Amino acid sequence: TYTFKVDNKDQAKKAAKWAKKLGLSFQIEKHGDTFKITVQ
């Protein structure tokens, strides 16, 4: 499981695209202005 934080929606979208490309499941949680992405 890999967790990282991004500062904006664009970065969150890029991370989601990357995870989908690799066939991984992911969750994006919004914490105020940051997004926490968990990829597994």
Rank of each mutant, 00 (worst) to 15 (best):
K30D: 06
I28K: 03
A19L: 15
K9A: 13
T1C: 15
K9P: 10
E29V: 11
Q27I: 13
K9N: 06
A12D: 00
S25W: 11
V6Y: 06
K13R: 13
E29P: 00
D7P: 09
W18F: 04
D33S: 10
Q27A: 10
A12F: 04
F26H: 03
E29Q: 09
D33V: 07
A16L: 10
T38V: 07
A15I: 15
A16M: 12
H31K: 08
K20N: 06
Q11T: 07
T1P: 08
Y2P: 02
T3E: 08
K36T: 14
G23T: 02
N8P: 02
F35H: 02
K5W: 15
Q27N: 10
K9W: 15
K20Y: 08
K13I: 12
I37T: 00
K5D: 10
A12P: 01
I37L: 04
K17D: 08
Y2I: 09
F4G: 01
W18Q: 03
V6I: 06
I28N: 01
F35M: 04
Y2H: 07
E29F: 07
A12T: 03
G23M: 05
Q40G: 12
S25M: 10
K14H: 07
T1R: 11
T3N: 04
L22N: 10
D7S: 13
K36R: 12
V39R: 00
A15H: 04
V39N: 00
L24I: 05
K14N: 07
Q40M: 13
D33Q: 08
D7K: 14
W18R: 04
F26G: 01
Q40H: 12
T38L: 05
A12V: 10
D10R: 14
K17E: 11
I37G: 00
K21Q: 09
Q27K: 13
A12S: 03
T38Q: 05
D7R: 14
V39H: 01
Q27G: 04
T38W: 05
D7N: 13
Q40I: 12
A16H: 05
T34A: 13
G32W: 04
N8Q: 04
F26E: 00
T1V: 11
F26Q: 00
E29A: 07
K21M: 11
K21H: 08
K30T: 07
Q27H: 12
T3F: 09
L24V: 04
I28E: 02
T34S: 13
L22Y: 10
H31R: 08
T3M: 07
I37K: 00
L24H: 04
L22E: 04
K5F: 15
A16V: 12
G32Y: 05
D33M: 08
F26V: 12
K20R: 11
A16I: 14
F4M: 03
V6E: 01
F26T: 04
Q27Y: 13
T1E: 09
T38N: 03
T1G: 11
E29L: 06
K9M: 14
K17I: 12
K5Q: 14
L22V: 06
Y2T: 04
Q11Y: 05
K9Q: 09
L22P: 00
T3K: 04
T38A: 04
A12G: 03
K20L: 10
D10Q: 13
K5M: 15
A16P: 00
G23R: 05
G32T: 03
K20P: 00
K21G: 08
F35V: 03
K17C: 13
K30E: 07
K30S: 07
K21P: 00
H31E: 15
T3L: 04
I37N: 00
H31W: 11
T38Y: 05
S25K: 12
F35D: 00
T38K: 05
Y2S: 03
A16K: 11
K13E: 10
K30L: 07
T3W: 13
S25Q: 11
T38I: 10
Y2M: 08
D33G: 09
K20V: 07
I28F: 04
K20E: 07
L22R: 13
Q11C: 15
D10K: 14
D33T: 11
K13M: 12
A15P: 01
T34Y: 15
Q27P: 00
Y2V: 07
T34V: 14
Q27E: 09
N8F: 04
Q11M: 11
K14R: 13
